[in-house]
Design a protein around this nucleic acid. Structure first.
Lengths: 207, 207
DNA sequence: TTAATAAGCAAACGTTTGTTTGGTTATCGG
DNA sequence: CCGATAACCAAACAAACGTTTGCTTATTAA
């Protein structure tokens, strides 16, 4: 008695289409990826894809949303399991962020690689989705016990810029999400300690 | 006696074409920018542009090269005028890098916003150009007097990622290249001091 | 078994794309 | 003034694009 029967009819290729789209959008960008590219990757015909979405921009938006969902869940889960220490929480979130970016599915990478301005019809939607996700890091930085004259926004944007650049140079075997998160956060953390302990340095170094 | 006479016949629209292309490539991406877009921005006909370059990819490559040239010259000039102190030199280079990115011409931004994978026919060329430029930062980080157990590559890539992300959130009036360069480099520098001075911190913080 | 519908095929639509071709105008050295 | 050529126009090309339409197949509930 064979059991591998689809329970519902919608156990179809929708997922495979989204997966292929995520990979192609990240590899070649949104505009350079054609519907025919996605069709070829899923062994379907171009027109058939439109049963599952109503436009190419809708497809991108759906994949983008899935990317935000996955990276958000990754971070939220990490935070739920993290300690109360603000620095440890930031590091846990960063590791989760990097892990989602590098998990091989490319969903999360869509969020950081596809510029909203590349998708004119969905620009505001994509920006809103990204901002909602990144608000987590605003909170995390607000909780840090750092000197009042330190610019938390710049620190946050520095970290986000650094993390979102990682997929460009990441090499499996050499780097790991946990190792990189540790190095990034250590840099920010030690910078606070160094700033507190330092009262005279060559000109141009003080805050 | 009117002097504003063109000295040579090639005082033409080549420059205007390149300028418009740089702006459009950054604003909408390479693939989403059509030859007709550039023609419209320069008050020319699409076919006329081909007198000045032989293909759209060639145009992008030329603009990219000009971007690399400008940001390189910006950094090289800053380094020539900088002191001998390794940290001050890194900060001067970073300020020059950011200044070039934000100078309004969009040439330098092409270098950090256009992914080589978006231009299949010129991918290797673009990567080589970018790597040659970034080699300056490899040298700058090699010259830093930091602990031997610190990963200079990660520090460098962290800085480059942070800097190249700046155009996304930069706001004139609020931020300045000099101010941001100072904050970025201070973070890296204080981190070294903090690491040296710290011997016991909560778990997960040590190098 | 049958009616309903989910899922996809086959083929084409009109548009936009990068690019080419042949002719036109303006500027220049001689 | 004239031949040369730099610079551009006008018009079209084939290919690729996103998308639509009508039809077929497979699965399900009754």
């Amino acid at each position: 008695m064979i059991e591998a029967r689809p329970k519902t009819r919608s156990n179809n290729r929708r997922e495979k289409i989204f997966d292929a789209a995520a990979v192609l959008f990240v590899e070649k960008g949104f505009s350079s990826t054609s519907i025919r590219d996605i069709a070829k990757a899923t062994d379907m015909l171009p027109g058939s894809l439109y049963y599952h979405f109503s436009s190419k921009e809708d497809l991108l938006t759906a994949v983008f949303e899935e990317g935000v969902k996955r990276i958000s869940e990754s971070v939220d889960t990490a935070l739920a399991n993290a300690s109360q220490d603000p620095w440890e929480r930031l590091q846990a979130a960063s590791e989760a962020h990097l892990s989602a970016l590098l998990d091989g599915s490319n969903y999360a990478q869509v969020v950081v690689r596809i510029l909203p301005s590349d998708v004119p019809g969905a620009e505001e939607t994509l920006v809103l989705l990204r901002d909602e996700y990144e608000s987590r890091f605003i909170s995390l930085f607000n909780d840090l016990p750092i000197a009042s004259d330190i610019d938390r926004s710049v620190q946050r944007l520095m970290l986000i810029g650094a993390m979102n650049h990682v997929p460009v140079w990441f090499r499996k075997g050499r780097d790991t999400p946990a190792g990189l998160a540790h190095k990034f956060i250590s840099t920010l953390r030690y910078a606070q300690i160094g700033a507190e302990m330092t009262y005279d340095l060559p000109s141009g170094v003080k805050a």
